[in-house]
Design a binder for these strands. Structure first.
Lengths: 198, 198
DNA sequence: GCTTTATCTGAACACCCGTTCAGTTCAACC
DNA sequence: GGTTGAACTGAACGGGTGTTCAGATAAAGC
């Protein structure tokens, strides 16, 4: 036996990444073997190396793709003019995007230490760019007086941690619907930055 | 060679746990081997089994000890009467305690998936008890009108995520002193729950 | 000073790891 | 329909894994 009937590089590649994402999110990068990923795809371990040069690159690609998609998706959100409107949009976007991609979020936050320094820096740069998008909103609100913020960087980190935390407890079909959660978190975020509501 | 000069169970046991905590926090449970831990202690791998029945129990003990210490430490904080005072005390306590134990915090949050179900449930119970302590404060404030909270459980999760997030970016000797961070986070937390300041 | 015993070594156990590669198979093209 | 080349297998490589245990050593108690 060698080549499977109906096999295609175009379908196997994505399936490898999907299986890796699922397994790594569940068990952690170090705890998942290439053989486990291969078994999930229905292939021998050696075949994975047609789609990634090594295990760590597979992880790196998952993280980079996730963060680039995050940045692109936020840039695609229609721009609001007022800081309050922009913050409202950010909160809804952030929660929605992250709940849709719980696995990728988990990996991008937890597996940083398994990257070599250069790649770690690359991923951190992308994350930093996203944080800067929120900080720009907070700074704008601080400047025009619609927010009251002692330190925009601190508020940025506080809000992102608060919002991302939703992925740790949210379960589909739980007590609260996503829209309700987004609304409540939007209010808490606006309150936290001392928004003078209008 | 066998027994080392000046060896003691009383000193080796804690050193094993300390080495395990340091290494697991840095590299992750699955990525750290018993031989690495032993080398850090200055002992052969086999000797570790005088202090733990197996690797997973070592992890479990670290997590349980951390959370029990957390609960005990909070119970030792002098009780405030008003919800606002209690929330202020909680924020300062939480940030201070967590910044003092960055390694243990990291482990207790990231390595849950490496516990067998029964132990996972045990750790989650302890964490839940701590969350309940905050929720009780928020409920009290909601009842007496000093806070404005649509959903106390949501607010609890939001605040804990926000506060614990500090451990991800705080560095000793950084731009802001701990007291400043605690003050700013206290204000953000009070704002987030709609505290009518007095 | 001798015995006891807690502490630790070093080797072994069976198994799993990431990665490579010669060889096999099947789809696609001429 | 024969040839080419992409897709994949299966075995092997050197090395690491958690854990066990007989034996060695040094501290503690008499």
């Amino acid at each position: 036996m060698a080549r499977k009937t109906g096999s295609h590089s175009q379908t196997t590649g994505p399936r490898v990444r999907a299986a890796a994402a699922r397994l790594i999110a569940r068990h952690g990068y170090a705890a998942v073997s290439m053989r486990q990923i291969a078994a999930e795809v229905g292939v021998q371990a050696g075949a994975l190396y047609l789609y990634t040069p090594d295990k760590q690159t597979l992880l790196y690609d998952l993280m980079r793709d996730h963060l680039e998609e995050l940045l692109a998706a936020w840039q695609a959100v229609p721009a609001e003019t007022s800081p309050e409107g922009r913050l409202r949009a950010f909160v809804r976007f952030h929660i929605g995007f992250h709940l849709d991609r719980a696995e990728a979020v988990f990996i991008a936050y937890m597996e940083l230490r398994n990257l070599e320094p250069a790649r770690f820096a690359e991923i951190e740069k992308l994350r930093h760019a996203y944080e800067d998008a929120l900080e720009a909103i907070l700074s704008a609100g601080q400047s025009d007086g619609s927010f009251s913020i002692p330190d925009t960087r601190l508020a940025t980190m506080a809000l992102i941690a608060m919002l991302t935390g939703v992925t740790n407890w949210y379960r589909e079909g739980g007590r609260l619907a996503r829209a309700e959660i987004e609304t409540i978190y939007t209010d808490m975020a606006l309150n936290a930055v001392g928004a003078t509501r209008g």
